[in-house]
Design a protein around this nucleic acid. Structure first.
Lengths: 251, 251
DNA sequence: ATAAGCGTTCTGTGAATCAGAACGGTAGCG
DNA sequence: CGCTACCGTTCTGATTCACAGAACGCTTAT
């Protein structure tokens, strides 16, 4: 639901922040054109953000500062789910040698909380903090499968089901079918849907009251993981990691 | 330098964000008292932040959302220094079994970019994004030692030299002496200065034009690292990691 | 029942945001 | 070597809009 009385000045500041995130280091005039504000207004907002550490200035260019990482990091650190899961994700990565990931749902989209690279891990362009559609990844499907159906409907309504690649899910029926098989198997698969040649396997983590807290996954190149391994050893490792996290969180 | 024409509304929003960071989930009235604003104003700011994903509402409580991690993560990911150093820090942690850290200087303070836990690593309360005074850690001293003296003076002026514990550096002379020995040895030591029983060893990473980009460190409990190891094998490993990063960054 | 607390909405007014113009500095060009 | 063009910054005044305070509906405690 939208705010009844939004603070327009704050909205301008936030627009500017997002413009800076898109562009990286940029000048005042450039930004002013990008966000459709006057130069003086942009300048005032930037210097204000600078005073508080959110923006840095080098020469005549402004850029976002690590204050955002400070705030974001402190939020993440305060999440019990992250604290408990962190060492398990690391083990998962080290044991499999592949890329292990941790994701939570927030506002209908997925947010990567961390990723840990094993010895042979592929180098994806994911990173802690990255947002992703839930229906396009194994992680997301693992979460959706154990969310109440009403929430899934809400999320579809709010974010749609755009396929990101030819192979990925692109309709309501496909999605609900997929979620059904996730529930049958207990884990979710992404077989080259998001990236050609990449296989992912994701498992949900649930609280003692059966609410989904997030999901765990491993991503590996197809060349290294046969169908047999996928549904055998690898899925077992991922499920086991998810299980350990569940046990540790519920004491 | 402070902004000539600060945007006061934006400052209020930022104050609110910091209050939320301190308190964690909180209600409107509580926050209004904390930041000395009217309830309606606080409410308007919170709902505006919420519309943009920076704040979440659960029940009647507001809290910061992972949007901050999204912005912070994207900034970190865009830093070449981080990209190059990340795998080396992980190796350093795995090889030593201890806690390895990566830090950059920003606005006169140190910011942890990442930390990686080896098998036996101590569990400090540091985290990616955490800010720290430069003169109180091995990482910070490694950076300060290779910053131009004028910058060091600026930083002292701006942030002071408060000792955090009885053992830590508390005066200008002590600091400059310490920095001199860092330059002689090539690495910095923190021998229980920040935390009783904890030893850290930090090495600077410099660019091809001899500017400090940041620092690398390993933290370990005193019980596991003798003086001999500290100045022998351990320092060599840390220096070697720093060196590899330098080489990779300068191609 | 009553009261005390909450989050939210509303309204008028005093404050402050911001467009646009003006300024000083720098870089590019003929 | 002027001349120009563009930059970031400062300034100012008119219009917008942020916000204190009061009122409202709701939940919880007494």
């Amino acid at each position: 639901m939208d705010a009844k009385h939004p603070v327009r000045t704050t909205e301008k500041t936030l627009t500017l922040v997002e413009e800076l995130m898109r562009r990286g280091p940029a000048g005042v005039t450039e930004l002013a054109e990008g966000v459709d504000m006057g130069k003086s207004a942009v300048h005032n907002h930037l210097t204000t953000l600078r005073d508080h550490g959110y923006v840095l200035k080098t020469g005549d260019r402004y850029q976002l500062g690590l204050k955002f990482l400070e705030v974001g990091g402190s939020i993440r650190k305060s999440m019990e789910f992250y604290q408990v899961a962190e060492p398990e994700i690391k083990s998962l990565a080290d044991e499999t040698g592949e890329l292990a990931n941790l994701l939570v749902e927030e506002q209908g989209t997925g947010v990567y909380l961390m990723r840990s690279k094993g010895e042979d891990a592929v180098d994806l362009d994911t990173y802690a903090g990255l947002r992703t559609n839930l229906h396009t990844t194994a992680l997301g499907k693992a979460v959706l499968a154990y969310l109440p159906e009403s929430r899934v409907e809400e999320i579809i309504e709010r974010h749609g089901i755009e396929p990101e690649t030819p192979r990925s899910i692109g309709s309501r029926e496909e999605l609900f079918d997929a979620l059904e098989s996730v529930r049958e198997r207990g884990y979710a698969i992404d077989d080259g849907e998001r990236l050609e040649g990449l296989r992912c396997i994701g498992a949900p983590v649930k609280s003692s009251s059966d609410e989904v807290l997030g999901a765990v996954s491993v991503s590996a190149p197809m060349s290294r993981v046969s169908d047999e391994e996928l549904h055998g050893e690898l899925s077992e490792r991922v499920l086991s990691a998810a299980n350990v996290i569940e046990l540790n969180i519920n004491y």
